[in-house]
Amino acid sequence: MSAKAAAIPASSARSPLAPWLFLSPFLICFAVFTVYPLIQAVLLSTQTTFGPGATRFVGANNFVALFRDPLFWKACSNTLIYTLGSIFIQLPLALGLALLLESPNLRGRSWLRLVLFSPSMVGVVFAAMMFGLIFEKRTGLLNQLLHGTLGIVGIEWDLDFGWLQQHVMLGLIVASLWMYVGFNMTFFAAALQNVRKDLVEAAIVDGAGPVSRFWNVTIPAIRPVAGFVVLMSVIGSFQLFELPYIMFSSSAGPDNRALTIVLYLFQNGFEVGDLGYATAIGWALAVILVGCTMVQRLLARGEEASA
C-alpha cells in the first residue's frame, strides 16, 4: 500500500507545506493531549500527589506498593473473571447467533441483525442504570418475572432477593451480554461470508456431518476475525469501569466484589486524590493490554505463515 502511494509523481505545483497544514490540527491536539500526558504519565508514576497541584517524588515506591496491595490484586482477579466470562460465554453465544442468522430462507435477516446489534449503541452508563433497576429487590424486573413465572408452578420466589448483593459478577456479566452479544455477532456474521461454499459442498459430498463441517470448514475460515474479536473483548473487558461503578451506586460493590482495575484507578486518582498511584495502576493496565495485543499479532502472523 505504501509502495503504491510512494509512486505518486511529486508535482511541482504542490506546496511542501500542504501536508503539514492538513496534519496540523491533528498533530497539535495529539501532541498536547496524548503525547505530553503520556510523558507525564512516566513522571507521575514516580510521585505521590495530593490533588493535581501538590506532588512528592517517591521513585519506584508506587509500583512496589502496587505489587503488595491486596486490593489491586482483588481488582485484577475480578477483572480477569469478568474477561473470561465475556470471552467464554459471550463469544460462543455471538457466534451461535451469527450461525442462526445464516440459516436458509430466513425472513427479515437484516432487521434481526439490526435489532440484535442495537443494545451496543446504548452507553454503558445507561445500560448500568437500567440493569441496576432490573436487579432491584422488590420493584426490579427480574424478581417480579421470577415471582410471576415460578408462582405458576407453585414455587414462592422471594421478591426481596438481592441479586446485586448475592451475585455481583453474574450481574455484570449478564448486563454485558445484553450489551455486546449482538455487537460481536455482527463481526462473526461478516466473517461467515468468508466461508467458501465449494468447501462446504465438498465436505457434504465427503459425508461430513454438520458438526464436523463446523470444526473443519467454518472455524478455520473465521479464525482471523475471531482472533480480532477476542482481542477487542479482552481490551474492552479489562477497561471495565462504568458498569460496576454505576450499578453499585458509585462504589465497588459489597466487599469490593465489583472492584475492577480501572475502578481502582479512578478511586485512587479522583476520590483519594493520589494521581501518582492511579497512574501506576494505569501502567499496569497498559502492560497487560499491550502484551495481549502483541501475543494476538504474533499468533496471527504465525498462522499466516503456516497457511
Binding site: 493531549f33 500526558p37 493535581p52 477497561q239 484507578l265 486518582g269 493496565l285 497498559a286
Partner: peptide, 29 residues
C-alpha cells in the same frame, strides 16, 4: 513528504495506548 512514515507509525502506535492510562496525567494537564 518527509516524515510521512513517521506520522503513520505514530498513528498506528497511538491506537495501542489504553485511555485510562492518560486519565490522571490528562487531568493534571
Amino acid at each position: 513528504f518527509k516524515g510521512r512514515g513517521f506520522c503513520t507509525a505514530l498513528v498506528l502506535a497511538a491506537v495501542l495506548i489504553p485511555g485510562p492510562l492518560l486519565l490522571a496525567p490528562g487531568y493534571q494537564l
